[in-house]
Each structure stands twice: as C-alpha cells, then as structure tokens.
Design a protein around this nucleic acid. Structure first.
Lengths: 205, 205
DNA sequence: AAGTCCATCTTACTGGGAGTAAGTTACTTC
DNA sequence: GAAGTAACTTACTCCCAGTAAGATGGACTT
C-alpha cells in the first residue's frame, strides 16, 4: 500500500446516524458537481470511504440518496425563511425579509440549490415529488403570508400569486448566478420593485 | 409470426428527413410518458419500427435525441409567441397576448412542455443548455418588449423583470395543470393582475 | 438489363453502472 | 469470553447506452 495514502486511516466504523449524515454531505457534493445521472454510486461510496452496499443499506436506491439530500436542503430553507419572516411588522416588510432570506440561502448553499435547480430526471418518482414539495412549502408560506396581510378573499388569486412569486424568484436566483455582482440585496430589491408596484408605472404607451 | 401483427407492414425504408421527424415525434411521447432516464432507446427504436443504431446514426446519443425534441418544441413556442405579440397596440396588450399564447401553448402541447418541465438530469450538458436556451429565448422576447414599450433605461432591472416573468409563468403553468378548471384566459388574467398592478393595492396593513 | 454506388438499415456485440446475495468483522452486553 | 448484532465487504447479475461490421434495396449510369 502506497506511502502517500490519501486518507489511509484504517476506515473507522461509525454509528448509522453519523454515517448517514456524512453520506448525504458527500452525495450533495458529487450530485452537484457531476449531475445526478453522471454521478455514480461507486464514486460516492469511494469518497465516503465505504462500500456501495452501505449506501443501499441506508438509502435503498440512488434516488433515495438524492431524496435525502433534497429533504435536508428543504428543511434548512424552510427554517431560514420562517425565521426571517417571523419578526416582520407589515406585509411589505414580511415579503422583503422572506425574499432576502431566500436569496441569501441560495447564494450560501449553492450545491444544495443546484440539486433543486437541476431537476430530477424522474417523472412521477419520489425525488421529483420532493422537489415539488419544496416549492409547495415556499408557496404555502407565501400564501399564508398573503392571507394574513391582505384583504383579498379569492383563494385562487392568492394561490396563483404565490406560485408566481416562487417561480419568479427561482428564475431570478439563476439569473443572479450569472451575474456575480448582483447581491442578495439587489435581487431582493428587483423582486420587490416588480412585485409590489407592478409594471404599469413603467409603461409609456 | 402472429396473424394479428400490429404494424406488420414490411418496414418500409424512408428518407432521412422524414424518418427523423418520425423519431422525434415518437421520442417526445416516450420521454414524456416514461421520463427521460426510464425511457430506453430500444423501446423508442421498437415503436418507430427501426433498429437502435438508426437512432444513433441520426442523433448520436440519447441526449441528442432529447435535444432534438426540445429544440422542436422551442421553435414552436417561439413562433406562436412572436405571432401573438406582433399585432399588439400597447405594452399591456403586448404582454397580455404573449402570456396568453404561452398558456395556450402549454395546454395544447403538454408532452412537449413536460420535456422542458422535467428538466434534464444533465448538468452542463447540451440538453440542459437547450432548456435554458428556451427560457432565454422567452426572456429575451420579454426584455425586448419592455425595452420597446417602457422608459426604464436600467438594463439590469429590465433583465431581472423578464427573468421573473418567465419563472413566474412557468410555475403558474404547472399550477394550472393541477387545476383543470383554470383556463389559459384565467391564468393570463392572474398573471397580468399581479404583474401590472403589483401587490401593494392588496395590502391592508 | 446489369452493374455500381451509397443511403438506409440490421445483427450481434462491449462496457459500465445500478442494484443484490451472502458472508465477514468489530463493537457491545451479559 | 461467548452471543448477538450493527457495520461492513466481496463478488456477483442484469439492464441499457453506445458501437463495429456488415447486409439490403433503390437510384442512376451506360
């Protein structure tokens, strides 16, 4: 065995929970850098320093592993957004804080965000559902916020608006990635400008 | 060979262009119904009534075939949107017509739309680029429309708004799929309401 | 009408990665 | 220190994307 063994610590055993966390952590990196289908379970297993059947023991399938990664990211996103909105004084403030939290999150956790962005291949599978559930979570948060702060009783309209906001922010976040100079603050400002006052005031004819 | 042979016409030869069209048509169906990764090239080849290497001869790879499907859909979307916006009288009218064309398109061409929705697996690959290019196309159309009709000289703001609109509409379209009763007209109305006048007028505190 | 050319098409394979069966090792507990 | 079990491994199978090499039929020439 070579003298310069990379992590030749004789492969310690570790409790399931800890190993799972480690696997998810590394899988997130590999999925994000190679893409879901190009990533191989053998590769992930190697990097974790464990054999492939362990991954299957804990996550059942490649998709199950992806799912765990997405769930993790989703929980974090939920947490930061709820925290941010909690102290808001009015509707505009709440919206601004929520948007800001989102844009900060996706900048700080690019890899996790990439998992959601580079949607799964898997129509009708649980991973696709999990990604949709993440959006649903954000949509619900926004819809609840609107229902709390706004007068409009039309549920359809509130839902539609919430969906629109989620989709718009997702796109805007991707746009931000192409423009290094656009900070979360600027992104938030753009979104608020549009969302709050609309396009009408810009129209000249 | 069975008497009830499904399409036992002795497998006619046909010119490349025509065969390609047929392949794309069938691939679109199979990708949409099975999902990209679950769809197999053997299956597609069978349904076309041709052997697998023909698919590779014409499209080089599975991803190449997907790419052809997406390009096709993209061209169609571009066409209907441009046609719709062409006769507009003012900014609001242009936006409304464009949105309407989009929502009609995705209702009428669900399969094609599903290809774009169920994003590829393939980070950094040409199929992912092609999907992004489709969004870019729509973003550019909207940005051009805004630049033509609005006063705002800030390019960043116009781009951000266009991105937001594209993302919002994409989400709204998916929301529509879950609500059979939401017609393209209603979807357009929701989008216009939000986009044009913003949320401010709804806020009560 | 027979020969030549090449686009269309086929059979029969390789390689790689997802998923698994069955067995092995180290830690805990009595 | 023996038993029991959680953590782990080796060594496979099978499926599917992609390919090498060759067969076939139609169009065009002479």
């Amino acid at each position: 065995m070579s003298a310069a063994a990379k992590s030749q610590a004789p492969r310690k055993r570790m409790p399931r929970a800890q190993r799972e966390r480690q696997m998810v952590e590394i899988a997130e990196i590999v999925f994000a850098e190679r893409g879901y289908s190009a990533a191989s379970m053998d590769d992930i297993a190697d990097r974790v320093g464990v054999s492939k059947p362990m991954l299957y023991e804990y996550f059942n399938s490649k998709e199950g592993l992806l799912l765990a990664c997405i769930s993790e990211a989703r929980a974090q996103l939920r947490h930061v957004t709820e925290q941010a909105v909690a102290g808001a004084t009015d509707a505009q403030d709440a919206m601004r804080r929520g948007l800001q939290a989102f844009f900060v999150f996706i900048r700080e956790r690019r890899q996790a965000w990439a998992l959601v962005r580079h949607e799964s291949t898997l129509i009708g599978t649980s991973a696709a559902q999990e990604i949709e559930a993440t959006r649903q979570q954000q949509t619900d948060l926004i819809a609840a916020l609107m229902t709390g702060y706004f007068d409009d009783a039309d549920a359809g309209r509130v839902e539609a608006a919430a969906e629109f906001v989620v989709g718009g922010c997702e796109r805007l976040a991707i746009w931000c990635e192409r423009h290094e100079d656009v900070t979360p603050e600027v992104a938030t400002q753009h979104a608020m400008d549009l969302l709050w006052y609309g396009l009408e005031r810009l129209a000249t004819r």
